[in-house]
Design a binder for these strands. Sequence first.
DNA 1: TATTGTTATACTCTATAACTATA
DNA 2: TATAGTTATAGAGTATAACAATA
Lengths: 155, 155
Amino acid sequence: MQHHAPPQDTSDNGQDSPRDAHLLDALVTAAFIVMAAITRIGAEHDLSLSLMRVLGILWDRRLRMTDLADYLGLEKQTMSGLIARAEKRGLVARAPSREDRRATDVHLTESGALLVAELRRQGQTALRPVIAGLGPEDRRHLADLLQAMIAGRAG
Amino acid sequence: MQHHAPPQDTSDNGQDSPRDAHLLDALVTAAFIVMAAITRIGAEHDLSLSLMRVLGILWDRRLRMTDLADYLGLEKQTMSGLIARAEKRGLVARAPSREDRRATDVHLTESGALLVAELRRQGQTALRPVIAGLGPEDRRHLADLLQAMIAGRAG
DNA sequence: TATTGTTATACTCTATAACTATA
DNA sequence: TATAGTTATAGAGTATAACAATA
């Protein structure tokens, strides 16, 4: 999908401009580049994207199974398996909630926290070459525009 | 990972600046937003990211199994299964290569080509709200900067 | 009754290993 | 011998369905 720009049919839309199509293609290409780097780093540590997201969310929080599942848009059964495997590896721990005896809180272990810190370091190292071709001025502009896009997006 | 900015240790690196860290965080957040949209559209059609990439690559090409696997960074056995399932669904077809009798060429069926066209339409529709908050000037700048980044990246 | 979480089951995606056919 | 592809097998990630314990 990100490897080429096949002939496009945009005539039936009315809202599209060729300029926007270029921007959208660039966004998709950039997204694949960034995700490839993140996925590769995860693979080196035997971590799926979902598990990396779970660990990242738990960095400064302690959450219930259901909240975690909602956060990632997964079913609670899926989260059960994900957390069970992560717990077996010593990355997270479960503890019964004191507010609701049906609920289970999940938190990072010390080992899990160390791993998250390491992942962040490796992520920055891996992504730095991606922006290596831009000068300081362009980097500032790109950061501003992306943040405006993120903050202002509809849907 | 994309949901917050935990305290970072960048002191051991020497190459990092706080500004770059902001840019890298914005790139990651934007990548997750874009991939979420793409993944959701794929899920609506029962397509994994890998299968979407395969179909996209085959849009204007006919490739061997091994080339496809190399393109996606997967093992050839994995590609065998992926293509077998896609073929069963009528999205792609296999044909023996005439140059090398060991090899198998894969190409889109008509149904597969229609699906790719539809995916591209839906992708553009889904991503348009993401850039809705930016004016025409900002869109042009963002497209230029992303393209410069993509073209100029190291690694 | 409704909610929280787990277990049972099935399918996709991925990999390693072993195999067949061709080069 | 090396390469192209498939099949066999195993494990992670995902979902639907059924269940237990608690609210």
